[in-house]
Write a protein that binds this DNA or RNA. Structure first.
Length: 476
RNA sequence: GCCCCCAUCGUCUAGUGGCCUAGGACACCACCCUUUCAAGGUGGCGGCACGGGUUCGAAUCCCGUUGGGGGUGCCA
């Protein structure tokens, strides 16, 4: 009778959720669901400094954001490593009783000192046969057996380690607290974990953990080590130097679906991507096809540019209603929602992130009577041609009585520009800068329609006055 | 130092001995479209790290070199 596969995701709270962690969580999640198994969340909070409730909540929230939540029947947890402290110590005792571990009274400094004097590397197993019992300050070390440990890894195949190169590692600290290696294995055994899917950086730990599983009388789980995510310098993504917090991307207006899709493409290709000419795929498609055996073995560069491209695609794919709803969350409270809804369809296809929304429409939400902030470079270019000022003057006249719709506004400008024998692309420039302050932005006539006749005319007049004045001063 | 992993366009990848004069995506460039900017369309640039084998045949298998990364804690 085959057991239900049990995967686990075991982050330690650090105050932010690493994108690399998000990816391995996604891998575990996809497998747990596709195989009808369970995704077990365990918070590794043994280190007292990492035991902050708000940090734990941060992990739960981050997981929920990428679609991994306790609402789903495949989700189990959160469990807390600290709750298994008794089991850790009990396991340590069993290991000692069975002769698989021994006590050692050398401090870290002493070990280093001796290694240096004797010219050996690592711990020299000095206390192996001293028959020491437990005592204050004494650590419990694992007695690494001879031979070779072979790790069967779903991503990498068989990886073998010569046990002679593995030192007798510490299981329990001098203060009686178990270390990660032991706690991790004991927890996995206690929770009936069958698959350990994690990042490659843990591969060197694996032979040690496998020996522990065996010494504790259990079959090791299925191992899988996915490649690490790296930065431009090809170094592992780190909290210190790289932008790795999932929360930060969320706050910058990335959609969770885009983030999830992008993360899954690192080291793996969604089904049919080549035929479709696109790596964009739904979670259902990816979940249905994801296999560890298909995951690449080399490190992947976390490319924000590509993430941004994915995000743009996802924003464009939103229904208008959904887009408006999400975009409104980025707007200042006092901005008129109806006014935003009117311009929304014209900006949706021009965005990379939701965070950009206020910046592209802010000219529509100025306080009464306030002048637009004019971008100097845009102004200089728009009013460079001789025809700019007279054209603006004509536009002001025409816009005084034209029907106030985008189409009519466009037609009116087209009539005006004929006199000057210029194309719309050029003719719209002075009007755009006058009304919006910038040379780029949402489609002009649609923007003016939303702005309204009164305010549009006011801004055009202010600009005309300024441009005409400058022209006169410059000419004289 | 020691242990382990990795090596296809700038980047992410497809490729598991002949379908590869190596395919797709992002980025970049050009053109088209166009109401600025995007989006969209078309096209382009660009890669199997190197050296030996094995084989009728190698991006694919083996060995070596070089390069990169990870780990080497009484952190997790």
């Amino acid at each position: 009778m085959p057991d239900v596969p049990r995967f686990r995701f075991a982050p330690s709270p650090t105050g932010m959720f690493h994108v690399g962690g998000a990816r391995t969580a996604l891998h575990n999640w996809a497998l747990a669901r596709r195989l009808g198994g369970t995704f077990v969340l365990r918070i590794e909070d043994t280190d007292a400094a990492r035991n902050r409730p708000e940090w734990t909540q941060g992990i739960i929230d981050a997981l929920a954001w990428i679609g991994i939540s306790s609402d789903d029947s495949h989700f189990e947890g959160p469990h807390f490593q600290s709750e298994y402290a008794a089991a850790h110590l009990e396991a340590a005792q069993r290991l000692f009783d069975a002769g698989c571990a021994y006590y050692c009274d050398l401090t870290g400094d002493e070990v280093q000192q001796r290694a240096k004097e004797l010219g050996v590397s690592g711990y020299g197993a000095w206390s192996r046969d001293r028959g020491l019992g437990p005592g204050p300050g004494r650590v419990l070390r694992f007695r690494v057996p001879g031979g070779t440990t072979v790790v069967h890894d779903l991503v990498r195949g068989d990886v073998s380690f010569d046990n002679a190169a593995i030192e007798d590692f510490v299981l329990v600290r001098g203060n009686g607290a178990p270390v990660f290696l032991l706690a991790n294995v004991v927890d996995d055994i206690e929770m009936g974990i069958t698959h350990v899917v994690r990042a490659e950086e843990h591969l060197p730990n694996t032979p040690k953990q496998q020996m522990l599983w065996e010494a504790l009388g259990h079959e090791p789980p299925v191992w899988a080590h996915v490649p690490v995510l790296v930065n431009e310098q090809r170094k592992k993504l780190s909290k210190r130097r790289d932008k790795v917090a999932l929360e930060q991307y969320r706050d910058e207006g990335y959609l969770p679906e885009a983030m999830v899709n992008y993360l899954m493409t690192l080291g793996w290709t969604p089904p049919g991507a080549e035929e479709r000419g696109s790596e964009i795929a739904s979670w259902a498609e990816m979940e249905g096809a994801f296999r560890l055996e298909d995951v690449n073995t080399s490190p992947a560069f976390f490319d924000i540019k590509k993430l941004a491209a994915f995000n743009g695609e996802y924003i464009r794919a939103l229904s208008l209603d959904e887009f408006v709803r999400l975009a409104e969350a980025e707007l200042p409270d006092d901005w008129d929602r109806d006014r935003f809804a009117a311009i929304a369809p014209h900006i949706q296809q021009r965005l990379t992130t939701l965070k950009e929304v206020p910046g592209v429409v802010d000219f529509l939400f100025l306080p009464d009577g306030a002048d637009v902030a004019i971008d100097d470079a845009s102004w200089a270019k728009a009013f460079q041609p001789d025809w700019a000022v007279p054209l603006l003057s004509d536009v002001i006249d025409a816009y005084g009585s034209v029907e106030w719709t985008a189409d009519a506004l466009k037609t009116a400008l087209e009539q005006v520009m004929e006199t000057y024998d210029i194309k719309l692309g050029k003719a719209q420039a002075p009007v755009r800068v006058a009304a919006t302050g910038r040379s780029v932005g949402p489609p002009l006539f649609e923007s003016l329609e939303v702005l309204g006749r009164g305010e549009t005319l006011r801004r055009l007049r202010v600009a005309h006055e300024r441009a005409a004045g400058a022209g006169a001063a410059g000419g004289g």
